[in-house]
Amino acid sequence: MGLISRGFTGRRREGAEDLPPGQYLTHDFPVLAAGPTQRVPTDDWKFTITTETGARHEWDWAAFTALPRDEVTVDLHCVTRWSKLHTDWEGVSLDTLLADVETSAHYALVESYGGYTTNLPLEDLTDGQAWVAFRYDGEDLDPEHGGPARLLVPHLYLWKSAKWVRGITLSDHDEPGFWESVGYHNYGDPWREQRYWE
């Protein structure tokens, strides 16, 4: 006797249960551009963390790639409404990069080659929430997707995961970045659908 019915649960679309509100699932990896693709040779690449006192911590490519690296599988949510699930990355955790950085700052301004910036609270970069990623899907990260290295902060909309990242400036005050200064939400939590200025 058929006591168990699936009829009341409805039929869910593939992956819909894993998507933030207003997002659709995509399987390719769209490239969004606010300017020309930066092509930074790793010989010239540097990553710098500058604290609120002006202290600088700098890595060249050799020093950066010698750091302990994480392999992570994360979901990406772009504010233009596509989401891509279970993406595989390799990168250095911001916890590792910040380990020897003395700071009491609350805010971070992320800066990229090419002039792009994005801002977020420093606490969103720590505790295993953010990486400077340099490999995607088992290969070196393409310049189109932000290589040689990009920020990866998957719990916020993807514009926060700055491509071609070159440094982070820590500060006591919050400074809106490239999109945050012209209509996009200052924080950008996809699960609360924080797309635009409120």
Binding site: L32, A34, G35, V79, F178, W179, V182, G183
Partner: peptide, 19 residues
């Protein structure tokens, strides 16, 4: 991109942005 960006042909600086 998430918005429209118009850049200078000479230096690539951002001239205007629309969201």
């Amino acid at each position: 991109g998430p918005g429209m960006v118009v850049r200078c042909t000479g230096c690539d600086s951002v001239l205007l942005r629309v969201v």
